[in-house]
Design a protein around this nucleic acid. Sequence first.
DNA 1: CCCTACTCCTGAGTGC
DNA 2: TGCACTCAGGAGTAGG
Length: 269
Amino acid sequence: MPELPEVETTTRGLSPHICGQKILQVNIYQPQLRWPVPEVLQQLEGQVSHDIERRAKYMLWRFAKGTVVMHLGMSGAMRVVDADTPLRKHDHFEVVFDNGKALRLNDPRRFGAILWQPKGQSLEIIDSLGPEPLSEEFNGKYLHQKLSKRKGAIKNAIMTNAVVVGVGNIYASESLFLSGIHPKRAANRISLKRCRLLAFNIKEVLAKAIKQGGTTLKDFTQTDGSPGYFSQELNVYGREGQACNKCQTPIKNIVLGQRSSFYCPRCQR
DNA sequence: CCCTACTCCTGAGTGC
DNA sequence: TGCACTCAGGAGTAGG
């Protein structure tokens, strides 16, 4: 279940298999995802795809006529298989190529999305996104400025797409631990110096996770089916009651914004 | 603007 | 085994 590193891993894994391929057929088996899957996608039949790029946790798959916008939600996975491979439960969307392969979206919880953005038109959900965490635009100064009007918990703030994209529940907890910041601290009460540290650690933790192919918690796998290897690097996520790696104090778990939030009560202030 | 609660779903795990 | 219940990595949206 994808956070940014998983989406990046998926995008990179898919690219060589689906870009430059001619589409034979588009099959919508279950149109009821987060939003209805648009039937106009059928018009891709006969088209050749250009490139695929990640923006936040969206994958943007470009064609001459427009872009297929794909999101994996909480439980989505994309796989490239031989087109005659039997469908699995929860295979909702499929693109068949003329080389005998097929791209399939499998998504048990159906929080994922497949959208169509016609060439020249904009999509509000994409336009309203904040900066990429790994870009130069996202730095301590930017973060400090952006947080200056936010009185809510810092963890909620860094998980808000308008502030910075791609920081999900796992990496929010992890980056706050590395920065020694309590997840509940009011966002506007964090110094510029600590904002610099936090921005740095968000970049670090995401870059490292991407390098290792994403976090494997339950059933995330890379597009070839192999697991990611970041899960052993987690300092606090899912470690309630276990000893902090820095000071041995038991890790705590509180609920913030209806999400589990793990932290060390001694290291994080 | 910001913030919180709610919402869409299925499946895995737990306790009885 | 079965049933009821809780929880899960996202994030748009309504209403304060």
